[in-house]
C-alpha cells in the first residue's frame, strides 16, 4: 500500500466512525429536489422535465459548497495539519489524497443518487447518462477549486460565507458547461464540446489546486 492509498484509507476509516454524517449530502439532495418540485408543481410536466438537470446541478453545487469547509477543518482543529505542513516534501500528494477522499465521501453519493432521482422524475435515459457524466467531471472540479478557498480561509472562525463568496463565481463556467451539455443532449444537439471544456477545466485545477492549496495552508497556519 503506498502513502497515497494509506491517506485515503485513513480518511475512510475516520468517516466510517462519524455516524450518519456521511449520509447528510444525500439527505440534503432529497430535500432540495422535493422543495424544487413542490415550488414548480403548477408548471406543465414537459417543462418540469426540462428543468430537472438544472435542479440537479444547482443542488449538487450547493451541496459541494456546504461541504468545502470540512476538507481541512478537522486536521486544523486537532493539530495534524501542523505535521502535514512541516513534513512538506509530499504535501501536494497528501492534499490530493484529502481532496479525493473528500469528494468520494461527500460528493460521489450525490453524483450516483442524483441521476436515479432524475430518472424517477421522468428524465430520459440518454439525458440522465449525460447528466451523470457532467456531474462526474464537474463535482471533482468544484472540490478542487473549493479546496483552495477552504485552505485560504482555514484560520477564520466563520469562514463558510467567505468560502461561498470566493468559489461561487468560479463555479459559473462549470455550471454553464454542465447544464448546457445536459440540455443539448435533451434536445438532441451535440454536447461533446461542453464535456471537453469541462475535462479541460478539471485538468487545469487538478494541476493547480495542490500547489495553490499547499501555499494557502502555510499562510493559514502562520
Amino acid at each position: 500500500m503506498n502513502s497515497f492509498l494509506k491517506n485515503i484509507k485513513k480518511e475512510f476509516l475516520i468517516a466510517s466512525r462519524a455516524g450518519l454524517e456521511v449520509l447528510m449530502p444525500v439527505m440534503y439532495l432529497f430535500i432540495i429536489m422535493v422543495f424544487f418540485n413542490i415550488s414548480i408543481s403548477y408548471v406543465e410536466k414537459d417543462i418540469i422535465v426540462e428543468l430537472i438537470p438544472l435542479m440537479v446541478w444547482i443542488s449538487c453545487l450547493l451541496i459541494c459548497v456546504l461541504n468545502l469547509e470540512t476538507i481541512f477543518k478537522e486536521d486544523y482543529d486537532d493539530g495534524t495539519l501542523d505535521m502535514f505542513v512541516i513534513n512538506d516534501r509530499y504535501i501536494e500528494r497528501d492534499i490530493m489524497a484529502k481532496v479525493i477522499s473528500h469528494w468520494i465521501l461527500s460528493n460521489l453519493p450525490v453524483v450516483i443518487i442524483a441521476p436515479v432521482l432524475s430518472l424517477i422524475l421522468g428524465l430520459d435515459v440518454k439525458t440522465t447518462y449525460v447528466l451523470f457524466i457532467t456531474l462526474l467531471i464537474g463535482t471533482p472540479t468544484m472540490s478542487l477549486i473549493g479546496s483552495i478557498a477552504a485552505a485560504l480561509t482555514l484560520s477564520l472562525k466563520k469562514n463558510k460565507i467567505l468560502i461561498s463568496i470566493i468559489v461561487l463565481p468560479m463555479y459559473i463556467p462549470i455550471l454553464i458547461f454542465g447544464t448546457s451539455a445536459v440540455n443539448n443532449s435533451y434536445f438532441g444537439i451535440d454536447y461533446e464540446s461542453e464535456i471537453l471544456m469541462m475535462i479541460i477545466i478539471f485538468l487545469i485545477f487538478l494541476l493547480v489546486s495542490p500547489i495553490a492549496c499547499s501555499k494557502a495552508l502555510k499562510i493559514s497556519l502562520d
Binding site: N7, K10, L13, R17, T80, M83, Y90
Partner: peptide, 25 residues
C-alpha cells in the same frame, strides 16, 4: 516531529490506528 498545544491525533481512530496512520510517509 512537532507536538504543539494540540495533540495532532485523530479522535475517531484508536491508539493503534493513530500510530499506524499518523505518519503519511
Amino acid at each position: 516531529a512537532y507536538i504543539g498545544h494540540k495533540h495532532g491525533i485523530k479522535n475517531n481512530l484508536t491508539l493503534n490506528e493513530n500510530l499506524l496512520y499518523g505518519d503519511s510517509e
